[in-house]
Nucleic acid binder design. Sequence first.
DNA 1: ATATTTGTTCGAGTTTTATCGTACTGATGG
DNA 2: CCATCAGTACGATAAAACTCGAACAAATAT
Lengths: 122, 122
Amino acid sequence: MSRVSATFPADVFGEPDFLPEPLPEPATQSIRLEAVFGALSEPLRLTIIQRLLLESESFDHTCGWFGFDRPKSSLTHHFKALRAAGLIRQRQYGLERRSRVRTDDLNARFPGLLELVVAWTP
Amino acid sequence: MSRVSATFPADVFGEPDFLPEPLPEPATQSIRLEAVFGALSEPLRLTIIQRLLLESESFDHTCGWFGFDRPKSSLTHHFKALRAAGLIRQRQYGLERRSRVRTDDLNARFPGLLELVVAWTP
DNA sequence: ATATTTGTTCGAGTTTTATCGTACTGATGG
DNA sequence: CCATCAGTACGATAAAACTCGAACAAATAT
């Protein structure tokens, strides 16, 4: 893999200068509280958001990074639910699809929400 | 109706000296964040909690007070869901079952949560 | 080119949740 | 006693959500 590839992994060399466009997601203003609550009512999804908040360093993570023992199609389902509700932003880096929490958007729209997720004990 | 009846309505003369026992509800420590999120992911239930927070004066409210145009059995279902998740406390006053938000419990356990509900715009 | 890797899409089965009519209960008032 | 009133319980139907296998797609590595 080339050091200058447009798709090299963000967790090896840090964030690339030019990020791929995010996958389709709701605009900040149209994130709905009830949809956010629905997305976070599923323990696996709550875990995803919490771990992204607590263990993310300066880069985004693939869904494989979490190490969940679930079929890939189940993970796709949950990540899509999180993105549709406005909780995560996803970008495609070559093969990988990396996710980060939309922290700024969520803090602006629902202050205090992410603190609750961080404090959650499974 | 007697002024000293054990079951007179709390919204006419204020809170009685001896409250009826609350209906079965989860203990404060066992209220689960994911269950709370699930309960609040339903717009009607979100409305119930918001209105109890915003429009409740010093007394609890019956489910009829909200004026929802839904069958009674549907309302029973949603109020039971809110109580099971630990969001409301319900007491029986004669015929009526009155609800209040478990504000202290929820603020202690999930600080900031109720503010999000208050700020919600349907 | 071919295999490997990461993740998607489709579709089916299962479980949960919502909706709501009907019948019922228990307290109150005449 | 009998009617009324607030709300429950039951049960059926319908809609949503979760789970997951199988087949597929696209980028990468050799």
